[in-house]
Amino acid sequence: MSTIYFTEEHLLFRQSLKDFLQKEVVPHVEEWERTGTIDRFIWKKFGEMGYFGLATPEAYGGLGLDIFYTVILLEELQKINSGGFAAAIWAHAYLAMTHLNKEANDDIKERYLTPSVDGEKIGCLCITEPFGGSDVASMRTTAIKKEDKYILNGSKTFITNGVYADYMIVAAKTDMELGNKGISIFVVDRKSKGVTANKLNKLGWRASDTAELAFDNVEVPLKNLMGKENMGFSYIMEHFSLERLIMGVNAHARAEYALDYALQYMSEREAFGKTIDKFQALRHRVVDLHADIEMCKQYNYYVAGRLDKGEYVVKEATISKLKSTKMADEVAYECLQFLGGYGYIEDYPMARLLRDSRLGPIGGGTSEILREIIAKIIIDKKEYRPAAD
């Protein structure tokens, strides 16, 4: 049955994806969570199914589909209870590949985008730095032009796919005098001399690799510049809308999964002669959580619809991430409580879900930074605009 956002084709895609994830991914999740390494074969399978090319034009091997196919992919990835695996997939497809789709020339697209769609190359996006955090403009990494190349020096941290990626989309300052107006974007091969990676040990997202990267006099060919020199900050800000919406969608889907699981448990767990879903105190808490999820979900769909039409939704996407990730944390906390002692046991899904959810208000811009961005828009009347062509 179609809805205002999803057609029959969308619903068929969702069911096919569910079946794929249950068959090809779920049997391996526990191993990947334990080892922190996702086997390479699954990337190729995702590529064969077209899942990496949903937003990529057909000219480069993609499907060129509307954003609600992406929404479905994100939602279903959250419902296999491995935030790390989900992050590895969407960080490749919607962080690294978004820059390839938007800023790369035909040569770079042929070398990196098409293999990314096929699952033959894995990408990561390198913006955050050890001393900068959410303050992109303060980055210290430099790319100094020297004859026929740029010399890249600096470091990045909290980079999803940073250890096992085949290429990196790297932001660096090409003009130190211009501040945030002197940042450029490059595609850098992971095997380049001078690139080193240190894998970080995280509270959650255990299946994914998260790295601190160092660049020591790395030579980057001039042809690997993405878009225009010194336009990188505008590109980054523009694509933050998609990243923040992604994290908002992840949050509502994660919360939905948590509440569904808790309700199933509550319908089976008995206390004082009846199942615990019959106790009014718990029933009313469930209602509040359901209402919060539904409000965030419908708002996120609204923002996705506007983004799909090409609108610049920096405020709306920032609100999406701010409110949805806070809601998801609260839902995970309450659902763990519904399970009582079993919620605290690793054999049940809620403990991992609680840990994975906690990254939501941190990654892609902390909630504190997001509030300041929104404050600038609604109080200071600041206008954010897309990068000029």
Rank of each mutant, 00 (worst) to 15 (best):
M1V: 11
Y5E: 05
L11C: 09
V25D: 08
E33S: 12
T37P: 02
G47C: 04
Y51G: 08
D66H: 07
F68Y: 12
F68A: 09
Y69M: 00
E75D: 06
S82G: 00
I89N: 04
A93Y: 00
L100S: 08
K102R: 15
R111S: 10
R111G: 04
L113I: 04
T114S: 11
I122Y: 02
F131W: 09
F131N: 13
V136Q: 01
R140L: 12
I144F: 02
K149C: 12
Y150L: 08
Y150P: 03
I151R: 06
V163M: 11
Y167L: 11
D175Y: 13
N180C: 02
G182D: 05
F186C: 09
V187A: 03
N198T: 14
K199S: 07
L200D: 01
K202H: 00
G204S: 06
W205A: 08
R206L: 15
D216L: 06
N217K: 10
E219N: 07
V220Q: 09
M226P: 04
H239M: 13
M247H: 11
H252M: 07
D260H: 12
M266N: 05
E270Y: 06
A271T: 12
T275I: 07
D277C: 00
D277L: 02
V286T: 07
A291V: 13
Y299P: 05
K321A: 01
K323D: 07
F338K: 00
G340V: 04
Y342V: 01
L353K: 10
T366S: 14
I378D: 14
D380P: 02
D380R: 14
R385S: 15
P386T: 15
A387Q: 12
